[in-house]
Amino acid sequence: MDIAPPISDKARQALGFLTEAETAALESFGAVIPCPQATLVSPGVALGPGVVLWPGVILQIAAGGSIAIGDGTILFPGTRIVATGGEVAIGPNAEIGDEGGFTVKADAEGIVIGRDARLLGGGSLTLRNRIGDGAQIIGSIRCQNCTLGAGGSYRHPIADERGAVLKGAGVAREITLSQGLVIQAFGLFADATVRQQSFFHPHERSPTP
């Protein structure tokens, strides 16, 4: 006699997600999932060893998209990553969704997030975005077609050698920012001043020769 799956699993499967047991089984490949019943993952998502999926994380693939997350990356509660016909590629040791979650939605153009990147505070990436190694988005910022240059992580001791940073709240469209630069804005980032990161962290400047 066949036994019907739990109601929660029926809903998961109807929406294209793994069952609770299948989600928990991802830990056998090295992922860390403290609460599988509160985590939604589509079949085919690639998770590197040590990836942490906190409760409330959604990883959704549709229309032939793909999601690949590098070793040791942490996805905090409220993080939603959707690949609809496009690619989301996240490097190792990134931190996404702390302090309010984060949304990443890729269409055919795709989104790349580098190693040691940090995205927090309820922001989002849509359309085409290239977030370099060590780059940061801090705050409720809607990013569309942005490129943030690679550099050291936020832990790097010299501010102007870190990846590019957007911080504040508002809309960032068609922004290209090089290593060591930062825009702080509350509105349209295209209208704001570009500064060296040492402007905000003067004690973390390069030593004077």
Rank of each mutant, 00 (worst) to 15 (best):
residue 136 Q to S: 12
residue 70 G to I: 04
residue 114 G to D: 00
residue 99 E to Q: 14
residue 11 A to T: 14
residue 177 L to Q: 02
residue 158 I to P: 01
residue 149 G to W: 00
residue 165 V to F: 08
residue 84 T to M: 12
residue 103 T to Y: 09
residue 92 P to C: 07
residue 139 G to Q: 07
residue 19 T to L: 10
residue 135 A to C: 09
residue 26 L to T: 05
residue 108 A to L: 11
residue 38 A to S: 13
residue 2 D to K: 15
residue 120 L to D: 10
residue 178 S to Y: 02
residue 80 R to H: 15
residue 126 T to Y: 12
residue 4 A to I: 10
residue 178 S to Q: 08
residue 36 P to A: 04
residue 40 L to P: 04
residue 150 A to D: 05
residue 116 D to K: 12
residue 37 Q to S: 14
residue 57 V to I: 06
residue 6 P to E: 06
residue 12 R to A: 03
residue 130 R to L: 12
residue 105 K to M: 12
residue 163 G to A: 07
residue 55 P to G: 02
residue 208 T to S: 15
residue 40 L to I: 10
residue 59 L to E: 00
residue 163 G to T: 03
residue 97 G to C: 06
residue 126 T to V: 13
residue 197 Q to T: 01
residue 180 G to I: 00
residue 59 L to R: 03
residue 43 P to F: 04
residue 204 E to R: 15
residue 31 A to S: 09
residue 55 P to H: 09
residue 8 S to E: 13
residue 174 E to C: 08
residue 158 I to D: 00
residue 132 G to L: 02
residue 48 G to V: 02
residue 165 V to Q: 09
residue 97 G to A: 05
residue 128 R to Q: 09
residue 130 R to A: 15
residue 138 I to C: 06
residue 43 P to L: 05
residue 176 T to V: 10
residue 143 C to R: 00
residue 142 R to V: 14
residue 209 P to I: 13
residue 178 S to V: 11
residue 107 D to F: 05
residue 168 G to I: 03
residue 115 R to M: 11
residue 19 T to A: 10
residue 171 V to P: 09
residue 74 I to L: 14
residue 179 Q to D: 15
residue 133 D to N: 12
residue 155 R to M: 06
residue 5 P to I: 11
residue 74 I to N: 06
residue 93 N to S: 13
residue 136 Q to K: 13
residue 143 C to P: 01
residue 117 A to K: 00
residue 85 G to Y: 01
residue 204 E to W: 12
residue 131 I to N: 03
residue 169 A to C: 15
residue 190 A to E: 14
residue 163 G to H: 09
residue 11 A to R: 13
